[in-house]
Simulated scan of single mutants.
Amino acid sequence: MDATEPGLGDTGRDGAHLPEHVRRNRQLWDSRQGAWFGKRARAQWAAEPHWGVWRIPQAELPVFPDDLAGRDLIDLGCGTGYVCAWAARAGARPVGIDNSERQLATARAMQHDFGLEFPLLHGNAERVPYPDASFDIAISEHGAIGWCDPYRWIPEAARLLRPGGELVFVRNSTLLTLCVPESGAAAARLRRPQFGLYRVESEDGTAVNFQLPHGPMVRLLRDSGFVLEDLLEVQAPENASTEYDYVDLEWARQWPSAEVWKARRSPR
């Protein structure tokens, strides 16, 4: 099946068949891609696995399952492909899909420079051009979890996973989303209501993020055939730093700025 077949992966250069939020987010990320992303991608590809805006090592924040060797993994919203690279070095067979062709161009350049090869698809992670039960692990680190509609991509992850397969995603915490203003860093003040929280649009209309509170997310996972196994609320390490301006260390030492969710596809 071709990754550019209409209604499944990408739908051509104009993206005419893509949902409106997918088109808007594609324009955003294609416009953002530049020298900073390339430099950051190279550093991520060269490093050992680490997670989130605070770059917490896998040994301290276990996102990957213990044993990746010989397992089929899909990264939903893979960006520049660094999670796939880490998985490949651990013996997995990764596939990456991303909405931004320019991000994927950087990923392909990194594949060439680091001597790693794995499939990279330009498309919408809400509809992936792979058959049912193709993967053992589906992962999203601030990828599909933030930029795709959860009511579309989580059932799609369930479809892609084999019985007993694992879904792992790293996202901004609900509390952070409630406390982040339109510009600047989160403060000790709620900026938006939690009830009804779902689709969060930027003030200038260029970006669409998604954030489900814990209750709706748990129900969505259950209704999609998952069993929730763990939820890790992330505290920033002492003396950590980040390049991002929407959260600072003082805030993230007191409250969770990120969450790691781990769920397993029902064996039935």
Rank of each mutant, 00 (worst) to 15 (best):
A35Y: 01
L68M: 11
G34Q: 01
K39C: 10
V95Y: 04
W86C: 05
G81K: 01
P65V: 12
A69V: 08
Q103H: 13
A47S: 15
L73T: 09
A41N: 04
A41L: 06
G79D: 00
A46R: 13
G70N: 03
G70Q: 02
A47E: 12
D67S: 14
G77R: 05
G34T: 05
Q33W: 02
V95D: 00
N99W: 04
A90V: 05
Y82P: 00
W86Q: 02
R71D: 01
Y82W: 14
V53M: 07
G77W: 05
I74N: 00
H50L: 08
I56H: 04
P65K: 12
G79Y: 06
G38C: 03
A85V: 07
T106Y: 01
Q44W: 14
L76R: 04
A90C: 11
P57M: 03
G34S: 06
Q44G: 12
I56P: 03
R55V: 08
V95K: 00
W36Q: 07
P62F: 13
A35E: 09
E60F: 11
G38Q: 07
F64K: 03
A85I: 06
F64H: 09
Q44T: 10
G91C: 04
C84R: 01
R32H: 08
K39T: 11
A88F: 11
D67Y: 07
E60H: 13
R93C: 10
V53H: 09
R55K: 15
A90W: 02
G79V: 09
R102E: 09
A35C: 00
Q58L: 10
Q58C: 12
P65F: 13
P65A: 10
T80D: 02
A69R: 11
D98F: 12
I56K: 02
L61E: 00
P57L: 04
A47M: 10
T80N: 03
A69Y: 02
D72I: 06
L76S: 04
Q33P: 00
G96M: 03
W36H: 07
H50S: 15
R40G: 12
V95C: 07
A92Q: 01
A85N: 07
G77I: 08
A88R: 12
Y82G: 00
A107C: 05
A47Y: 13
G77C: 10
A87N: 04
D98Q: 06
G34R: 01
L73I: 15
A105N: 02
L73Q: 01
L76P: 05
S100F: 07
Y82L: 00
W36A: 14
K39L: 14
F37V: 12
G77H: 05
G38W: 01
A88D: 01
E101N: 07
P62A: 10
S100I: 09
A43E: 13
A46Y: 12
I56T: 10
R102K: 15
R71L: 15
A90Q: 12
W45S: 05
W45I: 14
W36N: 02
